[in-house]
């Protein structure tokens, strides 16, 4: 596995698999599908583009792959400009377009052979490469079948094999799991994780658990702009999550409520009862230590102290509803 997916080192000795996007704008007529976005992808990173349909994810990917020409700005892949060195860049990129287009009337093996030839793999090496891809993507059972007759999960694997056949350092995967059933999604994610250990991967999705499952880093794209950039965990903490603490103590908590308010802690919800009082508190800082100390000082029997894990869905909704 490791051997199959291993990326070749650059001739210059610099690490391969870098993408630098600077002030990229892509317009269709008066409409800006991508509006002045800037970001970098480091070698070996797995980056997820997250955003609603029509946010500009696909357009950005199409520019990186050399399919579309930028209206403004530059895209560099390993230091080469997409406008000037488009063919050299295409050789370093494996691409799985949205909805996995394939020549459906072809047999899987013939299709991979065709792609290998188009990718410039020498005739005598094609068989070995197809064999490796068959192994990596689990295509043993379908090599002799027409692509038309394959399940969606298998077609997706053929699409991935097609994208990796020339062993590119960078993979661009547009919605790699859309339309798959839950089992197939798990399989494809597993495969992407395996690939991600060796290659730079940029994938797009509008399904949130996807980025949490597969990505080192998330770019949330909305209306052609990047509205957030960070690890899934960081995004959760910086936005909605990390600010809400569930705090419960034994007995009547009226007095405790007054103390908390004195310390400037915001009480979002309170449920005061004879046996147990429950609070939901919020603060910009992490107040868990302070809350523990308060309980000790006032001799409250602490029954719950829990910081709510933020949920990426909330972050997403917060950023993209407008």
């Amino acid at each position: 596995m490791e051997d199959i997916l291993h990326s070749e080192a650059d001739h210059n000795g610099t690490s391969v698999g870098t993408i630098n996007v600077r002030g990229l704008t892509k317009s269709y007529g008066p409409e800006r599908a991508v509006d002045n976005i800037t970001f970098d992808v480091r070698p070996g990173e797995v980056v997820g583009f997250l955003g609603p349909n029509g946010a500009g994810k696909t357009t950005t990917m199409k520019v990186i792959t050399g399919y579309l020409i930028p209206t403004e700005g530059t895209v560099l892949v390993d230091g080469m400009d997409v406008r000037a060195d488009t063919l050299a860049i295409r050789r370093r990129i494996g691409y799985l377009p949205e909805s996995t287009p394939l020549y459906r009337e072809m047999v899987t093996y013939d299709y991979l052979e065709f792609v290998a030839a188009m990718r410039g793999i020498a005739k005598e090496r094609r068989g070995a490469r197809i064999k490796e891809m068959t192994h990596a993507c689990g295509l043993h059972d379908v090599l002799g079948k027409k692509i038309d007759t394959l399940s969606k999960g298998y077609r997706q694997r053929v699409g991935l094999a097609q994208a990796m056949i020339h062993n590119p350092p960078i993979l661009i995967l547009d919605e790699p799991t859309s339309g798959l059933d839950p089992n197939q999604i798990v399989e494809i994610r597993e495969l992407i994780r395996k690939i991600g250990r060796e290659k730079t991967v940029v994938l797009s999705t509008h399904i949130l658990p996807e980025v949490q499952a597969s990505c080192d880093r998330v770019l949330i794209i909305h209306k052609g702009k990047i509205v957030a950039d960070g690890t899934p965990r960081l995004l959760q903490e910086n936005f909605v999550g990390g600010r809400r603490v569930r705090y419960s103590i034994r007995g009547d908590g009226s007095e405790a409520a007054a103390v908390l308010a004195d310390y400037g802690i915001n009480i979002l919800e309170r449920d005061i009862a004879e046996d147990e009082s429950r609070f939901v508190l919020s603060s910009r800082r992490d107040i868990r230590d302070q809350l523990f100390q308060l309980a000790v000082d006032h001799n409250w029997a602490l029954t719950q102290l829990h910081r709510e894990e933020g949920n990426l869905e909330d972050v997403f909704r917060q950023l993209t509803s407008a």
């Binding site: 399919y67 050299a88 295409r90 050789r91 691409y95 949205e98 287009p101 792609v115 188009m118 990718r119």
Partner: peptide, 11 residues
């Protein structure tokens, strides 16, 4: 079928 995108992103 969308295969044009494949063709035109080959080198």
């Amino acid at each position: 079928a969308g295969t044009l995108e494949l063709l035109l992103t080959f080198p």
